[in-house]
Design a protein around this nucleic acid. Structure first.
Lengths: 194, 194
DNA sequence: CGTCTATTTGAATGTACTCAAAAGCGGTGG
DNA sequence: CCACCGCTTTTGAGTACATTCAAATAGACG
């Protein structure tokens, strides 16, 4: 499995020499995973940060009525985890599942701590990741409060153009927070004009 | 203005000696602010982290129809900022306003960087703060997707018991994402029994 | 006491949901 | 290659949740 992409991902924020690169890569656990495969099951502790080398993941919760709610998608070059569980050590509230066959790199919490110790720059790297997630989560909350479903969908299209034709529509519906039925009607009303 | 509370806040995550405490406090700018006062105006760059020594703040955005949407409240002992602006240096999307007369400590970005340099432990402190915000924001997104307005309100009551009788109801309505009119009907239907 | 703002109430409307059923689509095995 | 199965998407009717607009009522403060 080719680690070029993850090294490039890191190089965007911090600079590593050859030895550091090597050490970092030695901490990763590569994993191939097929569509529908569960990477993390809600209720279990999430002890890995997951990097998506290619493929697509989704994370979701299941409410008391058994309805799934998609929290986020992770396309190529994204990191994913149930951060609540990851930070607190408590059982995860989210499930992480493969949407499109994927090559992943797993970085365990233990290895991550080791990494911080040996190459403190990585503190900075992951801090920046977290900062960015926080900002984008906040923006999502704002959109949720401000925008009707239609506009949230349009925004989604702009933001994840590569995902629109890859994801089942019902996943997009769930992400936006509407039923698949309503989503279908909404999209067809958009196409027809207005 | 008494800095005991902010020192206790920090002591929850990192340990400081007397000299470090003194240095930290020297970087803070105390500020008294009255109800309705704007601490940060959307459109301007947010270059301070704001600690609420007492009183209450709110942050909100204004949509294209001029409707306010409350992103978060900061009661006593909380930190607040427009993190998008703070991290990126771009104009803020949120406005921060005083809800109850407040005593604040402002920590400028410059001073915060100085702090990181002189007392690296603070990197850890603020990283933990950000991690916690991220987790709670994610939980809010999940609630938004999963729960009807009624249950979101009940959850809000449990989570911020001290705020319920302090905040104007229309602020809580806005935070939850409903109109004040609907909120009023919803609450009275809850009181009457189901 | 009067003014300003927050809250409540009501009627009409719109947005989104539920349930049921039909239609589409992709893969698999005969 | 076609028929069937399982799953996704669409369609429609009826319903529930939430909004808008207008107006009345209640509170807070000078």
């Amino acid at each position: 499995m080719n680690p070029d992409s993850i090294l490039k991902n890191i190089a965007r924020h911090i600079t590593l020499d050859e030895q550091e690169k090597y050490f970092f890569l030695s901490l990763l656990q590569p994993k191939h995973a097929k569509r529908k495969e569960i990477i993390l099951q809600a209720g279990f502790v999430n002890s890995d940060s997951i990097y998506v080398n290619n493929g697509v993941l989704r994370s979701f919760t299941v409410d008391e009525n058994g309805v799934e709610h998609i929290v986020s998608f992770a396309p190529q070059d994204w990191w994913m985890a149930d951060l609540y569980s990851y930070f607190s050590g408590q059982p995860a509230v989210q499930t992480i599942e493969v949407v499109e066959d994927a090559e992943l790199f797993l970085l365990s919490r233990t290895h991550q701590d080791l990494l911080y110790e040996r190459i403190p720059k990585f503190e900075r790297f992951f801090r920046i990741l977290i900062e960015k997630s926080l900002v984008s989560n906040q923006q999502r909350i704002i959109d949720n409060l401000s925008l009707p479903a239609k506009e949230q969908y349009l925004k989604f299209c702009k933001r994840y153009p590569t995902l629109i034709n890859v994801l089942p529509r019902k996943y997009i519906a769930s992400y936006i927070g509407v039923t698949p039925e309503f989503f279908s009607k909404m999209v067809s009303s958009l196409v027809k004009g207005k």
